[in-house]
């Protein structure tokens, strides 16, 4: 079975362990082999260990992620310096055009995302797409808001997503579909989310790739970088210590 990846499963702060376990178990049941959970920068080690234990019980790979919500470019750069070596996936929620441009060109950023509730707050234009295409940043689209909101707001959201997905395709920016769910009733299987992507003209096979190969590639690339053998892009330690003798 293909391993699907949901890089954005939201665990609200006030919920108990039972509910966290329920959400993770439900993700596993729906066929996700890896789940990305946003952890605050100052999260306690014990809390991470608890989540890790739950994931191991349900046979789900935990991806440690951080969601940055900087107020300006300077704050974004400061936060990136702090978190890059601590998290496997760094996502930036862009609230202005300047933040979106900086996040798109910064190679420490893995995902850029925008507000789903305010269609006017989406800044993924062709300039941002071009910057992202020369960097490592991908565009993340949360699917749960498409289910949660309706009426005129959903119409505006679908319209924005259609434009953004077309731009991402044109500039070859990696697209990642995530659940963005905080409730078990908002969670769907990857195939069902891919069906929902039909609303913004994303082909089924491309949507499935955006929930499997693309996020998996990001996670693997970052895990290699965070590993002890990474030196620089393309340079890794292959032997060390006594292994090097005689070679």
């Amino acid at each position: 079975m293909k391993g699907f990846v949901d890089l954005h499963l939201l665990l609200p702060n006030h919920v108990g362990q039972g509910e966290i376990k329920d959400l993770i178990a439900r993700s596993a049941e729906l066929g996700y082999s890896s789940v990305g959970i946003p952890l605050p920068i100052d999260v306690a080690g014990k809390d991470v260990e608890d989540i890790e234990r739950i994931c191991i019980d349900d046979d789900v790979d935990l991806v440690r992620r951080v969601d940055l919500r900087p107020r300006n470019v300077r704050e974004l750069l400061r936060l990136l310096r702090v978190v890059r070596r601590r998290r496997e996936v760094v996502a930036v929620r862009c609230t202005s055009k300047s933040i979106a441009r900086q996040a798109a060109k910064d190679r420490r950023v893995d995902l850029i995302c925008f507000s789903s509730s305010d269609p006017g707050g989406r800044f993924f234009g062709s300039a941002v797409a071009q910057l992202a295409s020369n960097s490592t940043a991908g565009l993340e689209v949360d699917m749960a808001p498409l289910i949660a909101i309706d009426g005129f707001r959903r119409i505006r959201l679908i319209s924005s997503l259609r434009r953004e997905v077309a731009l991402a395709k044109k500039f070859e920016v990696p697209l990642v579909l995530s659940s963005g769910a905080f409730d078990r009733y908002m969670l769907r299987s990857a195939q069902d989310y891919a069906s929902l992507a039909y609303l913004f003209d994303l082909a089924h096979h491309a949507a499935v790739r955006a929930m499997s190969d693309t996020p998996l590639g990001t996670v693997e690339r970052n895990r290699r970088k965070l590993g002890p053998d990474y030196v620089a892009p393309g340079v890794y330690v292959v032997k060390r210590g006594k292994d090097c003798r005689g070679s």
Binding site: Y185, R188, S189, Q191, L196
Partner: peptide, 20 residues
């Protein structure tokens, strides 16, 4: 049809999710 099934969130006021 599949998109409509995935987008369903409530039936008779009860939170609901359908899985194909």
């Amino acid at each position: 049809a599949r998109a409509s099934i995935a987008a369903l969130k409530e039936v008779d006021g009860e939170k609901t999710a359908l899985r194909v």
